[in-house]
Nucleic acid binder design. Structure first.
Lengths: 187, 187
DNA sequence: ACGGGCATGTAATATGTTACATGATTCA
DNA sequence: TGAATCATGTAACATATTACATGCCCGT
């Protein structure tokens, strides 16, 4: 394996906060990393097995687990913390991004303009929803992580989302105006 | 094949502008779609074959080709134009995005702060470069596509990049300030 | 004559999602 | 007791990148 994937570090990162099962990790990703990350079970379970094999995480003894269920709770090992720290300092590799909405827009023409305006409108609604979510998360961080050492970092990622979504909303408004205008000029 | 991939439509879209070879398509993607799309030869050539098989594009006769070289130039077929038009109107499927820089930042701590500030600084430089590129492309559109019907659509995608990059630059500045500040407060 | 760009294509590999199989536990 | 949720795992499939193989054509 060549493994340039960040999946293992997302998992290691979450385990650095507290011990978790594969199921917990999935939930944590969906709950807290959602705005800039995602993982599926198909990635999580095999990666967990590999990480344990490499000694970066340890399976906690059943006795120490919260319930009698057959959950498998993993904790990060010292080698895992070191790997995480090293990865954190490494400049992220650039991943070219793809945007299907922009692709549609680029190949737009007069007859498709109403449909494209619909795409823009839906995007605007989605980004507006995100802005509201960010506000809720910010309140939650203030409440639950008042003094946590990670707070400034969590806040920074949140602010990224805020800046990004605000900019997209502004773009949607500008573009709706421009496209309605050009449709009027070119009937 | 289930084929929800937009690759075929990126190719169809480019061929709707003018007939091209696989090599040309790769160059066009890198040249004009670069800011929101990418394709590799490994995708382009097999997709071209499939598209021709389905009758969405046609191989132009060698005689009609610009040079005597063994280039294979494809033109979009009427069925291809129809498929492109139908796709254009379909709301884009949401693809969750992943940002490795934000992932690093989220799992940041005091000792890694200087490295993270480095990531932020490099991102700022990259987005600033993009802004300059957008300006150059805007001038080029004005020059080369003064009256082209696609101009409003091309401009809209460009404006998206502008809004996005500007917002990220602002976030970088804000975040650099915040992280330097919290490093000072938590030594 | 040869280096660089033009040009097509494939194989190996990486990465990821989705759907399914399986079953335990909890609670109304 | 039955539905919802917890929980683990895998197989099939989809998508994409990278590296390689191959060879032509043009200008110096």
């Amino acid at each position: 394996m060549k493994t340039t994937s960040a999946t293992r570090f997302a998992i290691l990162g979450l385990l650095s906060l507290e011990p978790m099962s594969g199921y917990d990790i999935r939930r944590a990703v969906d709950d807290v990393l959602r705005h800039f990350w995602n993982e599926s079970y198909g990635q999580i379970y095999p990666t967990l097995a590999a990480l344990e094999h490499e000694g970066l995480i340890r399976l906690m003894p059943a006795a120490a687990r919260a319930s009698a269920r057959r959950r498998k709770v993993y904790a990060i090992a010292p080698a895992g913390r070191r790997a995480l720290a090293a990865w954190r300092r490494k400049p992220p590799v650039y991943r070219p991004f793809r945007d299907e909405m922009l692709l549609r827009l680029f190949f737009g023409d007069a007859p498709s303009t109403p449909a494209l305006l619909g795409h823009v409108k839906r995007l605007r609604a989605a980004e507006t929803r995100r802005l509201a979510e960010y506000k809720a998360i910010e309140a939650r961080i203030r409440r639950e992580a008042g003094d946590h050492a990670s707070r400034p970092f969590w806040r920074a990622t949140l602010r990224f989302g805020h800046h990004r979504s605000s900019a997209i909303v502004r773009w949607c408004d500008e573009t709706a105006r421009a496209l309605r205008g050009s449709r009027a000029r070119t009937p």
